[in-house]
Write a protein that binds this DNA or RNA. Structure first.
Lengths: 189, 189
DNA sequence: ATGCGGCGGAACGCAACCGTTACGTCGTAG
DNA sequence: CTACGACGTAACGGTTGCGTTCCGCCGCAT
């Protein structure tokens, strides 16, 4: 019964508002205004701001990310870092993710939702990637996938979402090489 | 003329409010309430919320951090990572920093202030640490201090401020070893 | 003793937004 | 053709916070 084009307009408006003003300052009225929609239409779908945002975020973030499998760990790594850096350079991601992360620190529901959609992905990617590499003998037995994930995502996130310095291909190469070195070296035990 | 004890009370209240509700929802009235102070006292010192927060943040974050210099890069690194991880585990830091980072993405003044107080520190630490190590021959000539800083701070920040998983000594050791390996390996060129 | 100035408290008018409701329109299913 | 239901608009009372103003208190310097 609820018209789908209206729902889509609202979803888009929420994402834009989130990017522009953040969760804290997001108001239902602004979303309605932006979507060209009455508040009624929003309250007919969700009962409050938190529920609305959580549902939309879950939906958007829940889309599957393909795990690279190129045949060698080095090129898997290159590819993954390129994908991640591209993703983090999109306005939506680079604005919304840090904002929701900060919000998650005070709102358990947001925290729980984010962990579900982000960390589970992250973890499975890490395990698969490291697993493949270990099986191929490219990484030492017992390499900790958690450490690996932190080493891969941490610097990228820091650069792009925190430090907000631009990343060029040259830099990405250096970083990939360093990460590769660190894992080959001795994150074992 | 302005009473100093009042100023201190306000500063503390601002930091607490920032940690609890974030910049977006921080209200002058709440700060005044918390500090046990009239709004008048606040407006007598700063003319608005942004100016107040910027001044206080600059002041708090501007305190110098000693750069480790233990004689070997490996132990410098261990020490630095321990210091940073300790700092990031404090409630104030782990709540306020991500919040302000997110806010910085849309407020140029906040962004500029944070970059001044954080990045400059960060950069100088990186350059000094890497410089020492290269001079000692512990790292290859031409090691990029930027990459090094990202490799050191990125994973820690990711773990503690984003992923929010606990860090134990064992994990810290693995991470330090990995970072060391990556830098010794080949982040050069 | 007098006066200056910072202080807390209270109230101001204004704006934004909450969540709800009433109303009139319009497309569609029956 | 009719009835239903989602739609936009507009208004509701209530809350919160802004930035300002005025008051009376009190400490301090003269």
């Amino acid at each position: 019964m609820l018209r789908n084009d209206i729902t889509v307009a609202i979803r888009n408006a929420v994402m834009s508002e989130l990017a522009e003003v953040g969760y804290g300052r997001l108001s239902i009225e602004a979303v309605a205004r932006r979507a060209g929609v009455g508040k009624t239409a929003i309250y007919r779908r969700w009962s409050n701001k938190l529920e609305m945002v959580l549902e939309i975020i879950t939906d958007v973030a829940g889309r599957k990310v393909p795990v690279p499998d190129t045949g060698s760990f080095a090129s898997d790594l290159d590819l993954l870092m390129m994908i991640v850096s591209r993703a983090l350079q999109h306005r939506v991601a680079s604005q919304i993710i840090p904002d929701l992360m900060a919000e998650a620190a005070r709102n358990p529901q947001i925290a729980e939702t984010l962990q579900r959609v982000l960390r589970i992905h992250q973890q499975s990617v890490g395990e698969k990637l490291v697993g493949q590499a270990v099986a191929r003998g490219e990484l030492p037995e017992g390499t900790d996938p958690d450490v690996a994930v932190d080493l891969i995502l941490g610097p990228l996130y820091w650069r792009l979402a925190v430090s907000r310095q631009p990343i060029d291909d040259d830099y990405l190469e250096k970083l990939a090489a360093a990460v590769l070195g660190s894992l080959k070296g001795g994150s074992a035990t």
